[in-house]
């Protein structure tokens, strides 16, 4: 995948770039990012401390950091890598009685040593919020509207994050660190073996 000497131990998550129409998405997303990446074996620098530093510097949206040399995060935070998250979609779509809630995010992990992109991923979840039809159009309309309004985006954002991290190699704190590449090769060999037998 990439030069293993560049494999990061720690990452700093910077404020998200928000391309969606929901103004509060940037703040809501912060709380959902630490756990999935930490569970995957990476040391995510404590968000509340990092966030205070960004706020003191007047940085509230990741778009203010675009084009910045990533070594800044190495010098100031001691992080090996920096995670840029872009919120592409965070909204509700209505089609008469059908409705869904969509959360789509893009992740780019950049090395603070070389400015190289180490990993990137785009993930999206669409959750259907229309209920079973009652046979009455007005009732269905109201039911869908209520269910959609009540859908909490945060658990959906968690799911998007969890989908994304599965494509990232395990970090040093994960018990399977360094073994996942081997596991992929073994499963590929097993698959080829099975195909040869057919």
């Amino acid at each position: 995948m990439y030069d293993s000497s560049l494999k990061p131990v720690s990452m700093v998550v910077v404020p998200a770039i928000n391309n969606s129409t929901a103004a509060d998405a940037t703040n809501l997303i912060v709380s959902t990012l630490t756990v999935p990446f930490a569970d995957h074996g990476y040391y995510v620098l404590p968000m509340s401390i990092v966030d205070d530093i960004f706020k003191n510097e007047g940085i509230t949206d990741g778009s203010q950091l675009v084009g910045m040399d990533a070594s800044v995060f190495r010098d100031n935070f001691g992080a090996d890598s920096v995670l840029y998250v872009t919120i592409e979609e965070w909204d509700t779509n209505y089609i008469v009685i059908a409705a869904n809630v969509t959360v789509a995010m893009k992740y780019v992990l950049v090395s603070t040593k070389t400015n190289e992109v180490l990993w990137s991923y785009q993930a999206k979840q669409v959750v259907d919020t229309a209920g079973d039809s009652s046979g009455n159009l007005i009732v269905d309309l109201i039911k869908t509207a209520v269910q959609t309004a009540m859908t909490d985006y945060v658990p959906i954002a968690y799911r998007v994050n969890n989908m994304a991290v599965t494509s990232l190699p395990y970090g040093v704190y994960h018990p399977q660190n360094g073994q996942d590449a081997e596991a992929a090769v073994v499963s590929k060999a097993a698959r080829e073996g099975a195909l040869a037998q057919e």
């Binding site: 131990v9 720690s10 040391y43 620098l45 404590p46 401390i49 990092v50 100031n76 935070f77 001691g78 992080a79 090996d80």
Partner: peptide
């Protein structure tokens, strides 16, 4: 204690 458990946090936490 955090710096001891996770040395990679040292730069940030020392700053704090």
């Amino acid at each position: 204690a955090e710096m001891e458990t996770y040395p990679e946090s040292a730069v940030l936490l020392q700053r704090v």
